[in-house]
Design a protein around this nucleic acid. Structure first.
Lengths: 208, 208
DNA sequence: AAATGCTTGTGAATATTTTCACAATAATTA
DNA sequence: TAATTATTGTGAAAATATTCACAAGCATTT
């Protein structure tokens, strides 16, 4: 099993490649790609060699072929079904995020405890949370996104994991713990902004 | 200057501490905190020693004191002003995200090119993008969040940086490059989900 | 067809990060 | 007050990750 940063980079390479493809690139060199993906050329080549992605010496890499190979590695050769819990502002924004559909990621339903948020007939239906367990089983869903308030997040996570969800992206500002055979990724927006604030201030005090 | 992961962890410790404080903890030990923040106790102590955060041997750390010290390090002792560009679904969700105000992060205005999205008199005003440069200067804004479509993102970034913005959180799925003295953090939602998909599948094939 | 130039692929070297392990020491108990 | 116990703080060791540097090899030029 390979490390998280490495897989993140593969995914960034893929994203950069799709952008380069729109600019009519047929081939890329490791340094083009490094530049577009925020890495170094040696890193790109090393990552590729780990996964057996080969180019041509002097000829670089074929964009289409590389995207296809990365798709395979990243499980993008077929559509991946997600559910979402918490149809608040953030939840709704994610339900409508155009990047997902384009990238074989489909949010097939959302769930909420708030009656006023329900919309069982919408394009992406919003259903009562008590139906989530059945829904997961019936539709063989493996992946979920949590967008509920911090206090509800641990319970929701527990429900999802016990219903068979294997991978969770959590936006609630509390670190959810995974269990054997499951993966939880936590995005804490405040933390991300604090990081930026810190480094801007650090730059100031270095130059002062 | 310290490394990104380390600062991220400090920020997570802070987040975990505020959660622990709600549970009436006065003191924490490095292993409590590690557990809550997803780290190891040795890591917590090492990080703290780098920043001169001291506890009591056998007595652990005082929660309030630690939060105050972390606030200082992370620039949370005063409100940090942000602007946001791109008042679409995601942009609006972030404008209403309750975690920011609680954490001394204030989005003071949003900007868009789409006339129909403007709302100059809203709580957080949504203004025409052409006003952004003046606004940044007049209000001494250092930080921005980009929530525009991928094709617009590089231009918007250029405008913001040349207007004096020093730190950007970018949600557009393209890696924006910083310039001297600036910090750009990129969050690519597709990449995050791909990571989860990969590791769930990796677990399956390991156990198969 | 040989020479040249450019880019890959990768082992070795370097750098960074994390973990270990234990002396120092504060709280608690006897 | 002395003994015991629990936890910090931190060098040293181990593990990981990144970069270097260059032989191998393809494309282009001469």
């Amino acid at each position: 099993m390979h490390n998280k940063n490495c897989i993140m980079r593969l995914s960034r390479y893929r994203s950069a490649l799709t952008n380069l493809k729109l600019l009519n690139f047929n081939r890329v060199f490791s340094d083009n790609l490094a530049d577009a993906a925020g890495a170094t050329s040696a890193q790109v080549r090393k990552d590729f060699s780990i996964f057996g992605l080969a180019g041509n010496r002097r000829g670089g890499y074929l964009v289409d072929e590389l995207i296809a190979q990365l798709d395979k590695i990243l499980g993008k050769d077929k559509v991946q079904k997600f559910i979402l819990v918490g149809a608040g502002n953030m939840g709704k924004a994610l339900m409508n995020y155009p990047g997902f559909e384009k990238n074989s990621i489909r949010i097939i339903a959302a769930f909420d405890i708030d009656q006023t948020k329900l919309a069982p007939n919408a394009g992406t239906p919003v259903l009562p949370l008590e139906q989530v367990k059945d829904f997961i089983a019936k539709n063989s869903v493996q992946f979920a996104i949590i967008c509920v308030p911090v206090l509800a997040a641990p319970q929701v996570s527990e429900i999802l994991l016990s219903a068979g969800i294997r991978g969770i992206l959590n936006f609630a500002p509390i670190r959810l713990k995974d269990r054997e055979g499951c993966v939880i990724e936590n995005i804490n927006l405040v933390t991300e902004l604090e990081n930026i604030i810190y480094f801007v201030k650090a730059l100031d005090s270095t130059n002062a």
